[in-house]
Design a protein around this nucleic acid. Structure first.
Lengths: 193, 193
DNA sequence: TGTACATCAGTGAACGCGCGTTCACTGATGTAC
DNA sequence: TGTACATCAGTGAACGCGCGTTCACTGATGTAC
């Protein structure tokens, strides 16, 4: 049947949002088209009216994840007292909440491992999307030039992502909590003067 | 046919070594049993005379990777002037050589993303193997107690792994080179006094 | 405003493919006598 | 030392399964007249 005016656009967005969560939780290979569409009470066949391929969806979902996470970090920085933005970002990024919810968290921490193994063209596209994330975060980093702030943002976020990723391999809740506290202290010091 | 005395043991080791390389390069899901066995001029059927499952091989290969990487880092530290061990480790870990050869490199950088998504029992086992790696590295970290050195090793290596992982998403050689140089400076400073 | 037709989001069977795993079989070597 | 038999690493066909993708079809709504 034919659907009303903006119906298609809304469906597309629902697919992207669901995929953004699922890919971060289960990886690019870990979440199939059928399961994804069923979650939205649709069948797999309709998927290709919205996306050329699963890879196209992956990129779109990554873009959405980057925006979502960027918004969250921006909100944290905005809520912090002036001068304490970066510390607040580090604390939020390395929080237990973030650690326990990869599906709503940083796509760099959740998907870097998948992106590395993508074919070159897709990998480069995804790298670009991740860089737009770092660019947005750059304003909270110290540095004389825009380039310097951006480069520092890349280092800070990718290294926090590494520690977060390792913390997620730990089953023990208390252990994770200690590890994250250590990590917050480390990154706060590393990024402070 | 039946094979000579130590033949089985040697075959097993060849499988583990090949898997250790392949898993780091292509991930746990990215390298199949058939392809792996064919690389060794064997057929897939024989695999189950050596391992109960692919997951059992993954653990074994992770163990081998951790030992291999631990040996490499230890050699780097041993070759460094007294007091310069940690700086040498950071430089080697964040070198272009390491970045371009995940198949021979750090399993934490290459496989953390896969390990996070393993079923709980396997994930805990793999986490333990990664911890034995951090424990071995702990002696090169500053700290009053063994526990403190170990915790610092976890933070340092996991955060370097994150940056290395991100660098691997970058197709451009020169860009990677700059990023790694930034990362070496960052981690050397963070880990020094 | 009413009618006829075109559109196209969504359906569900079907495709080829590679995966992990199983199993009956082979046959050279180890072992028991 | 020689013979008969057991062993078992490795083979290759076959299994069920889930995957991404294709396609003929449906039918309510948009659009043209």
């Amino acid at each position: 049947m034919r659907y009303s005016r903006e119906h298609k656009q809304r469906t597309r967005e629902r697919i992207v949002q669901a995929a953004a969560r699922r890919f971060r939780a289960w990886g690019g290979a870990g979440s199939g088209i059928t399961t994804l569409m069923n979650e939205l009470h649709l069948t797999h066949g309709g998927f290709y009216r919205h996306f050329a391929s699963k890879e196209a969806l992956f990129e779109e979902a990554l873009r959405a994840s980057v925006i979502e996470m960027g918004d969250r970090i921006t909100a944290v920085a905005e809520a912090a007292p002036r001068g304490a933005e970066l510390g607040a970002i580090v604390d939020a990024y390395l929080s237990e909440r973030h650690c326990e919810h990869p599906e709503r968290g940083c796509p760099l921490a959740a998907l870097a491992g998948d992106i590395v193994r993508l074919p070159p063209a897709a990998r480069t596209a995804c790298h670009g999307i991740l860089m737009s994330y770092a660019q947005r975060m750059a304003r909270y980093l110290p540095g004389a030039t825009r380039d310097q702030r951006e480069r520092r943002a890349v280092i800070l976020f990718s290294s926090m992502a590494g520690t977060l990723g390792f913390a997620r391999t730990l089953g023990d809740r208390a252990g994770r909590s200690h590890l994250l506290a250590d990590a917050r202290a480390f990154h706060r010091r590393a990024v402070g003067r």
